[in-house]
Amino acid sequence: MSDLVHNGIAAKLQSLTPARVGLGRTGISLETRDVLEFQLAHARARDAVHARLDVAGLAAAIETTTCSTVLQLHSAAANRVQYLQRPDLGRQLNEASRKLLSAQSSGADLVLIVADGLSSFAIERHVPAVLNELLPRLATTSLAPICIVEQARVAIGDEIGQTLGAQLSIVFIGERPGLSSPDSLGAYITWQPRSGRTDAERVCISNIRTEGLSYTQAASQLERAITQARERRLTGVASHSIPASLPAGEEKL
């Protein structure tokens, strides 16, 4: 078998796809540079999963840029190790957060929820900027306090939205990192959030990151989804105008 690098094929293949094609060989093995490049990408993805969200810093950033009240909440998953193995716990609030939330006044049009999910990097890098783009478009909408939730999965927005009596929820969440995308942000819009909603009853906007969907594009898609949800009084599979692109990699089986 020939060596693609020395035949000049590698660069051409690489220009056609983001896949790791045209890698050189030493014997049958990868060369040091390529091994380390891969290890760096994996290290970033791992760090994105395990780095704890800087809740205080994020809350301050959101309060400063949006002048909104921010609530700091926590799921029933005690830590990351439990979170990764018990998705059910990541979908519920812990007792302290339930109490804090039930003391809030209810009945807003919209609650914005920021959940760490599988990438705290995605949250810290993109959420303040997306909110900056989005909030000016929601001038006539009454907003509940913005909720930041640690160790949380998408469905935690249902309990939060229900407790606050919100008509609509948007959950911003860190998506499962890929090797080339450690900081991809997703947003799930749910009409009348309440416990027991399925993912088929949400609209998802995925791949919000520097190399993907821009902040302006994301805000404009969110605005459109909110408008349509209100007109149709539902979100999800029954409403087809927004492309409900599920995050890549959720289904192979």
């Binding site: 796809t17 896949a19 790791r20 890698l23 390529d34 990192p177 890929g178 890549a248 990699g249 192979k252």
Partner: peptide
């Protein structure tokens, strides 16, 4: 998979 990195399904 090229370089063990599936750039569509996001897994190794």
């Amino acid at each position: 998979v090229p370089g063990a990195d599936d750039v569509m399904l996001n897994y190794q």
